[in-house]
Each structure stands twice: as C-alpha cells, then as structure tokens.
C-alpha cells in the first residue's frame, strides 16, 4: 500500500497558530533550544547522588550548568511558569518537583495562580472548561 501524498503543511502558519492558545506554551523547537541546558539539568536529577548534591547546595549545583540567571532564579524559586518561559518542559521539570517530593498536580496547580486546594477542587468539579480559552483571537 502506498500512502497518497497529503497536502503539505505550511510550517510558519503551523507554528504561529500555537501562540493563539491562551495560557499555553507549546514545546516547539525554539523553546527546546532555549531550554536545552535547563532541561538537561532537570534530567540530571534522575540520579540519587545528584539529587543529594543538588538539595545540599542548590545554587552551587546550578552553577555547574550553562543556564541563564533567569533560569537559575526560576529553579531556586520553584517558579514553574518562569522555568517554562526559559524553555523548560514539564516532563523534564518533573524531575525537579519529584526531587522535592511533589506531584504533577502540585506543579500544574502552582502555574495557575490558584491555591492547591482551589486547583484540586476545580479538578474534582470537572476541570477547567475549554470555553473561552481555546483561542485568543477568536475568543471562544
């Protein structure tokens, strides 16, 4: 069976459309490049000896990585939105919150401006509705 050639996707409009989604940063190549060292730092926490060393002196451990001062501060502050702005990806950053003994729900909740209790209750009540947060331009 040969696949019929589909219509080619225009990469520029494909990527540009992602910026139209409210409160969402899609992990594009641009972000992946920006966050390379930050994400590799997070990966290093998959080893117990690195977790111990990191927790013993976070700042010194971070200085071993070629990350921006903003990324370093974001890690020290456990500011996950700021880490994502620096090119971090939540699955990489999960090594950081796991090192802290925190869950995906904790990390996700921390990025919404809600308290943990409010966020957990929102999920139990059915989660965040997609109404009004699908598109900035089209407002639906």
């Amino acid at each position: 069976m040969t696949e019929t050639k589909k219509e080619r996707i225009d990469i520029h409009s494909y990527l540009a459309a992602f910026d139209d989604i409210p409160g969402t940063r899609v992990f594009t190549a641009q972000r992946a490049r920006k966050g390379y060292h930050l994400n590799q730092f997070a990966m290093s926490l998959m080893k117990e000896e690195n977790r111990k060393r990191f927790l013993a002196d976070e700042s010194a451990y971070l200085d071993e990585w070629d990350i921006t001062p903003a990324a370093k501060q974001a890690v020290l502050d456990r500011n996950y939105n700021a880490m994502i702005d620096e090119g971090g990806n939540v699955y990489f950053l999960s090594k950081l919150f796991s090192t802290d003994g925190k869950s995906f729900q904790f990390a996700a909740g921390s990025m919404t401006g809600m308290t943990q209790e409010e966020y957990a209750q929102m999920m139990i009540d059915g989660g965040r509705s997609p109404e009004g947060v699908r598109s900035i331009k089209e407002g639906y």
């Binding site: 409160g23 919404t112 965040r128």
Partner: peptide
C-alpha cells in the same frame, strides 16, 4: 499540565 490554562478537561 502547564501554564495558566493547566487543568483543562
């Protein structure tokens, strides 16, 4: 799992 829109269902 990320950003201010986290929790969407």
């Amino acid at each position: 799992l990320q950003g201010p829109r986290a929790g969407l269902i």
